[in-house]
Amino acid sequence: MKFYDALGLEPKLAIDLDDLKKRFYDRSRQWHPDRFSRSSSEEKQRSEEMTSMLNDAFRTLREPVTRAEYFLRESGLELSKDAPPELLEEVFELNMALEELRGGDESARGQLVLAQERFTGMLADADSGLSRLFASYDGKADAIVLEQIRATLNRRKYVSNLLRDVEKELNVHSAN
């Protein structure tokens, strides 16, 4: 996986962030375009390509979610486009409440505040679930675990979109 290769890392899901940062800074210095100002144009180009690659690699790998998405893609697994069915009922009710609040019905606010708490909790659960699954997959490369990671990411994405909508609506209407 090229982002791991660029930073001299084994492709693992669990990463030591301090080590990642150090590798990124060391290599960024090493490939900094300023150090190639008097080099051949091929070398200059190489330094620019490496710098840009290191930036992409660092940005992708430092966050657990983007790292796992990258890892899955590189392993040939696309994120699913299906919504988690167990959440749909709740999502529907939530959208009804959002619509009511937009329509000026303040009684919907309590439901939204509760939803905000629940979704924040669900995100935290998804994140701790991910770090457990990362350790498990790194220990034993089991395809089932990779599927579980995909399901968790899928659920997490849905929940974080909902949370964004809820918080946006609560903020918009908090002035009233």
């Binding site: 486009k81 919504a83 749909l88 899928n154 994405k157 979109n161 909508d165």
Partner: peptide, 13 residues
């Protein structure tokens, strides 16, 4: 029937 699409957050009943 209740279905949804995660990328756009659509939900349809």
């Amino acid at each position: 029937g209740m279905v949804g699409a995660p990328e756009c957050g659509d939900v349809m009943k």
